[in-house]
Design a binder for these strands. Structure first.
Lengths: 174, 174
DNA sequence: TATATCATGTAATGCGTTACATGATTTA
DNA sequence: TAAATCATGTAACGCATTACATGATATA
């Protein structure tokens, strides 16, 4: 729905996006995409129209008013600890749609809570590594270490991302 | 199976591991774990025994010879591009079991191919950000940027991890 | 004795994957 | 005209999630 909100898309468009672009590593299988589109349509969140642009028919989906409300609600959900631990990919996919849907303030609010949760979880990982690391195998300890480094990198990113937004705000409102 | 190989585990043990430890963020729901254990048992990869240690019965699973062979085969599968793009968590979970199953040489071989695939994919992400970034929204570009930074961090980690193994080899065989 | 924790399951539902299928339109 | 690509689906299967259920044993 985020992609359809940015621009009307057919099922085939989405397949190509998932297969060729790095963002949102979702499945590009037709058995996943077409039924999902029909489900969203039956719920009234998107609406498909056949388009004949010279060639053959393409069923192009657009977001509806209830769909936009649903998308806003999804993007507005607070960042939880469980999101940070197990659904980081989904969080970043959500964030990529943020300023098109919630605006800069929404995106900045998201980044602030993400930074807080990331800081907490990263500290927990570091503590776990300090305490349990010595008793683990080399590869076990190193795997945990990779989690620590990945989350540290995300934490640094969330801070520079917030600064990027702050610069863009002061720059446009002199 | 990796966890059961390290140490015999009951379904409840696994639930607690998944719920409390940071490694391998798998589901701790009983509806996922118990049927999965029974499937592995029916395939002959693990074997459960009831144990009565003073308290009530616990069904403790151990790995079998075919199960160990299967685990070795799984851990020996080459690192593919798709693994790096969409299954990085699984790769690190696999790696955490490596030197208990394949030994240091196996773990080092894994790290070398992982480093190669990570370097390729990271370069692709950087190129995509350079080319497509200017046309994207701020949050879209930043989300992509987080992917770049995360993979750069993993790439650095894979190199230091390899050095850690090399030091441990020269240290023990003077 | 009530509550929390230990320990193991089952049932309904939904969804993803894999594989198969179809027909139209470019390109070689 | 053969092959690749466009564009959209269906069917079988497996598995995860959620919620419910059970009984035993510690702990308050």
């Amino acid at each position: 729905m985020g992609l359809i909100h940015q621009q009307a898309q057919s099922g085939y468009d989405l397949r190509k996006l998932f297969a060729t672009t790095p963002l949102g590593s979702y499945s590009d299988s037709p058995g996943a995409i077409y039924p999902a589109l029909r489900r969203l349509e039956s719920q009234g969140f998107i609406q498909g129209h056949d388009e004949y642009s010279g060639k053959r028919a393409r069923c192009v989906f657009r977001i509806t008013a209830p769909g936009l409300a649903q998308l806003e609600a999804w993007l507005s959900q607070p960042v939880t600890r469980l999101d940070v631990v197990r659904r980081m990919d989904e969080l970043l996919a959500k964030f990529s749609f943020m300023d098109g849907v919630l605006g800069k303030e929404g995106a900045m609010g998201f980044l602030r809570t993400l930074e807080r949760e990331l800081a907490i979880y990263t500290a927990e990982l570091e503590a776990y590594l300090r305490e349990e690391g010595p008793g683990m195998s080399i590869s076990g300890r190193l795997a945990l270490d990779s989690g620590v480094h990945s989350h540290q990198a995300l934490l640094r990113w969330s801070r520079t991302a917030l600064e990027t937004y702050q610069r863009s705000l002061t720059g446009e409102a002199p």
